[in-house]
């Protein structure tokens, strides 16, 4: 089962995740994003790409192969504190 956690301290209530998600997983309640429909999530991670404050976390999903990241950037990110 896919588990989605939204960090409420960090979320700024912009609604871009609810606007972008094709499966209507998110809804804005009380000015913060809430997960209402996690069973339909197809794990496309478009919400990760559009969130301005990196507030969303997915657990136990199938992570597709990502061999395209630039090798220099990879080695820089490994040494980032």
């Amino acid at each position: 089962m896919v588990k989605i956690i939204v960090d409420k301290d960090v979320c700024i209530g912009c609604g871009l995740c609810a606007h972008d998600c094709p499966m209507k997983v998110y809804e804005i309640r009380d000015g913060r994003s809430t997960v209402v429909n996690p069973d339909d999530c197809m794990q496309c991670l478009s919400c990760h790409e559009i969130c301005p404050s990196n507030a969303i976390e997915h657990q136990d999903i199938y992570l597709s192969r990502r061999l395209y990241v630039d090798l220099e950037v990879c080695s820089m990110l490994r040494r980032f504190v």
Binding site: P22, M42, Q43, C44, L45, S46, E49, Y62, L63, S64
Partner: peptide, 10 residues
Amino acid sequence: IVHVGPNTCL
């Protein structure tokens, strides 16, 4: 194609 994303496409 219905939706494209960084991890999965529908």
